[in-house]
Amino acid sequence: MRELLTSARIPAPKFRYTPCVRSGPFGFVSGMVALDPATGAMVEGGVGVQTDRIFDNLELALQDYGFTLEQLCMAHIYTTRFEQFGEFNEVWERKFAHIAPPARTSVGVTTLPLGALVEIEFVFVSDRQ
């Protein structure tokens, strides 16, 4: 069974896709870029600022998706500025300072949607089926 989930707390998708798909205990969150929830526009700033916004948006959406950050199992990270990856890691370390971090893969890419510097997709698992 597949449950399609959305959240009014974050900007609606700019393209046709489902923001989160739950299948049994698993939640698959589509790649998120740093959109301002109030305006829907990309936030200004570098990799660190955009990463912070992505995690802030994720935490807002998780309230509607039915998952918690503690249930995050995997993150796939894409960036057009791999030379600034230290900024990403600073945010990552802060977000997971008090909980076990998930597995992750980081990939440098040429371009991302909407001119984003960072995009992250997430996989969650819960004990709810």
Rank of each mutant, 00 (worst) to 15 (best):
T51N: 08
D52S: 10
D52Q: 14
D52M: 05
R53F: 02
R53S: 13
R53N: 07
R53K: 15
I54E: 08
F55G: 07
D56L: 14
D56E: 15
N57E: 11
N57H: 13
N57D: 15
L58D: 11
L58N: 05
L58W: 03
E59C: 03
E59K: 15
L60M: 11
L60G: 01
A61Q: 01
A61F: 01
L62Y: 03
L62D: 00
Y65C: 06
G66K: 11
F67Q: 06
F67E: 06
F67R: 13
T68N: 07
L69D: 01
L69E: 08
E70V: 09
E70Y: 03
Q71P: 04
L72H: 07
C73E: 15
C73A: 09
M74T: 12
M74P: 01
A75N: 02
A75F: 00
H76E: 12
H76M: 07
I77C: 11
I77E: 00
I77L: 04
I77S: 00
I77T: 04
Y78H: 05
T79R: 05
T79L: 06
T80A: 08
T80R: 09
T80Y: 09
T80N: 07
R81P: 00
R81N: 12
F82Y: 12
F82I: 15
F82H: 12
F82P: 07
E83D: 15
E83M: 09
Q84V: 00
Q84T: 03
Q84R: 13
F85Q: 13
G86A: 12
G86W: 02
G86N: 11
G86Y: 06
G86P: 00
F88K: 05
N89T: 12
N89Q: 13
V91T: 14
V91F: 04
V91H: 02
E93K: 09
R94I: 08
R94N: 10
R94Y: 06
K95H: 12
F96P: 06
A97E: 15
A97K: 14
A97L: 15
H98F: 14
H98D: 15
H98M: 05
I99Q: 09
A100F: 04
P101M: 11
P102N: 05
A103R: 10
R104N: 08
R104P: 03
T105M: 11
S106H: 05
V107M: 08
V107Y: 04
V107F: 03
G108S: 14
V109G: 01
V109M: 01
V109K: 02
T110I: 05
T110M: 04
T110P: 02
T110H: 10
T111C: 01
T111I: 09
T111Y: 10
L112I: 02
L112Q: 02
L112G: 04
P113M: 02
P113V: 06
P113R: 10
L114M: 13
L114D: 14
G115L: 05
G115S: 09
A116L: 05
